[in-house]
């Protein structure tokens, strides 16, 4: 077949380029398909948790906000909020500023220390996937898992024994749920890593090898297009044969 002679050099290049770049192309399309086919809200885990804010009880005896500012003069934000602690709804103030974050009883302005039990109680209220089955509770101070931004340390990690291995991360100061993770988020993160080819921090999209692979894939594509033009335009067989 004559076109075979002509295209063989392109074909050899196409094959060898595909050994290096084609394999990454497969990885790109698999990871891309995963990210495309799972809804982003699902990946974010919006279905894992529910809103647990409630109306501040009208009869709650709440200190004026000026008292909080007086006690914590460096506060930049003061929030009146509610917390379920020991099965009771408490009105609380959260004072945030250069001093850090403080959770205060809104009536007495006494600081509230959240224990592990309190954290689990709050986490279970957030948890929206039916009866909560906690498998482990860890107070993370260092070496965070890859799924957690190290800036959020220290933090409570509450793990659930469910489909998706849900993990909720709660602030030790305020008991607020800051991060939610599950298997599909972890899958997304893994595929994101393979998509951007940053196998360590999973954030750098500017690496030279990512760019090199894109250029290589471009060349691979050019060889493919040449082959495509040849094979599709010369493929027709002539009838007869004596000619």
């Amino acid at each position: 077949m004559p076109q075979q002679q002509r295209t063989s050099r392109w074909r050899v290049w196409h094959r060898w380029l595909s050994v290096i770049f084609g394999v990454q192309m497969v990885i790109w399309s698999i990871s891309g398909a995963y990210m495309v086919f799972f809804d982003l809200d699902f990946i974010h885990g919006d279905h894992l948790v529910q809103d647990i804010t409630t109306v501040v009880p009208p009869d709650a005896d709440v200190q004026p906000v000026s008292a909080v500012i007086q006690n914590y003069p460096h506060s930049q934000t003061v929030t009146l909020d509610t917390r379920w602690i020991n099965q009771q709804l408490h009105s609380v103030y959260i004072a945030e500023g250069h001093h850090g974050t403080e959770l205060l009883d809104a009536t007495s302005l006494a600081p509230i220390e959240l224990s592990e039990e309190h954290i689990v109680e709050l986490a279970n209220r957030y948890y929206a996937k039916g009866e909560p089955k906690v498998s482990s509770v860890v107070y993370l101070t260092e070496n965070p898992p890859t799924e957690l931004n190290p800036k959020l340390l220290p933090i409570w990690q509450v793990n659930y024994d469910d489909f998706g291995n849900t993990s909720l991360y709660l602030s030790p100061e305020t008991g607020e749920m800051l991060v939610k993770r599950h298997t599909f988020w972890r899958g997304f993160d893994f595929f994101w890593m393979t998509h951007i080819m940053d196998y360590e921090d999973r954030t750098d999209i500017e690496s030279w090898w990512l760019q090199a692979f894109m250029i290589g894939t471009f060349i691979l594509m050019i060889t493919g297009v040449v082959l495509l033009v040849y094979t599709i335009s010369f493929r027709r067989k002539r009838p007869g044969g004596a000619e």
Partner: peptide, 23 residues
Amino acid sequence: MLSEVAPTVDVADIRQRYPDAKT
């Protein structure tokens, strides 16, 4: 810092106006 901007309205007034306030 809130001590510098000196708010004059208190949460009590706001709770009265918005009794269904959550935060």
